[in-house]
Computed example of a mutant assay.
Amino acid sequence: MRILGLDYGDRRIGVALSDAFGWTAQGLEMIENGSEEAVLRRISELVEQNGVQTIVVGLPKNMNGTIGPRGEICMAFADKLRETLSVPVDLWDERLTTVAATRALLEADVSRRKRKQVVDKMAAALLLQNYLDARGK
């Protein structure tokens, strides 16, 4: 059962994919967040190519657990995916995944330019792995 994880951002959407057993998450790619039509088309292609059965969209909550403007944008994006695709779409609390991804890349001494290329993909992998771990318990 493959699951697709999406870390939605203004400029880029990080994409991660689980293994066939739904145990581990791997960063897959970044989608430039340009036209909504192009983004939805690419996600649809990924769903079809990889036999995805569920999509998980990161829901950035405030530190006190409330949902702010950024979270509302992600919820609207998840609704659009539900309307467009024929797979379930879950929302998952993704607080601090981008911070954790950036910190890990800094600790690995990855250059600023390379960090920019992979941080969104890595954040998507972290949020998807958190989701998979919670489901397994």
Rank of each mutant, 00 (worst) to 15 (best):
R2S: 07
I3Y: 08
L4E: 06
L4F: 06
L6Y: 08
L6M: 05
D7M: 06
D7F: 03
D7Q: 10
Y8G: 05
G9P: 10
D10M: 11
D10K: 14
R11V: 09
R12C: 02
R12I: 10
G14H: 06
V15R: 08
A16K: 06
A16G: 07
A16I: 08
A16W: 03
L17D: 00
D19V: 07
D19K: 00
A20I: 13
A20Y: 10
G22H: 03
W23E: 10
W23M: 14
T24V: 15
A25F: 02
Q26L: 08
Q26W: 01
S35Y: 11
E37H: 10
A38H: 10
R41T: 14
R42F: 04
R42P: 00
I43M: 03
I43C: 03
E45L: 14
L46D: 02
V47A: 05
E48R: 13
N50G: 08
V52D: 03
Q53N: 13
Q53V: 06
T54A: 09
I55E: 00
I55W: 02
V56A: 05
V56K: 00
L59T: 01
L59M: 09
M63P: 00
N64E: 09
N64K: 13
N64V: 05
G65I: 09
G65T: 12
T66Q: 03
I67T: 15
I67V: 15
I67C: 05
G68H: 08
P69L: 14
P69M: 11
R70S: 10
E72M: 15
E72V: 02
I73E: 13
M75G: 05
F77H: 06
A78N: 10
K80S: 15
R82V: 12
E83Y: 11
T84N: 06
L85P: 03
L85C: 08
L85G: 07
V87P: 07
V89I: 07
L91R: 02
L91C: 04
W92Q: 15
L96K: 11
T97K: 07
T98K: 08
T98N: 06
A100W: 14
A101R: 08
A104F: 01
D109A: 12
D109G: 05
R113P: 05
V118T: 15
V118A: 11
D120V: 03
D120A: 05
D120Y: 09
M122H: 06
A124T: 04
A125E: 11
L128P: 02
L128W: 02
N130K: 12
Y131K: 06
L132S: 04
A134D: 12
A134M: 13
R135F: 05
